[in-house]
Amino acid sequence: MKYYLKLGFILFVFCAIASGILAYINTLTAPVIAERKAREEEETRNSLIPNADFEQKVTDQGMIYYVAKDPAKDELLGYTFIAADVGYSSTVQTMVGVDPEFEVLGIQVVDQAETPGLGANCTSPSFASQFSGMSINDLYVDKDGGEVASLSGATITSRCITNSLRESILDVQDEDQIGGEQ
């Protein structure tokens, strides 16, 4: 009995030392990680709607979106938010910027782990750029009769991005109308 208590105590000491070291390193790296993530998001937002002030808002469903305003004229420039949906092998997160009429200004895929060479091509500029200027009714992939040319061999990924964009734009649009009436 005593022997096993001793073993447990030794293991406990090892674990305690290890967790102490990890806690220390975490305090060093956690702020760097958080700051980097925030800066990346901000850079993406700025590239979608340049020269704007962003104000964070939350929809009733808990979706975070940003309202972009022109700092000089206090004029509404549009909205940005992250649309997410399950693709072929991962959740694809796409940041999208829309103008006040909810036409797409631009999109950027921020997180995905789709098949390399097929679905992962969704990060390519040529795929992303075609979304600019599309309205909600255009946001269907070509196989569903819409305007989005799907990536060759990766219809599922293309459809996932397109549908997630459409749905989250609708969400924000609803929210905006309710907000407008109030």
Binding site: L7, I10, L11, F14, C15, A18, I21, L22, I25, N26, L28, T29, A30, V32, I33, R36
Partner: peptide, 24 residues
Amino acid sequence: KIRIPVYIVVIASFVTIVDMVMAA
């Protein structure tokens, strides 16, 4: 008797360090 758990604790700690430093 407890060498394997101790090794795993050591290894896991270094892996976590690598993970955090790399993420940062």
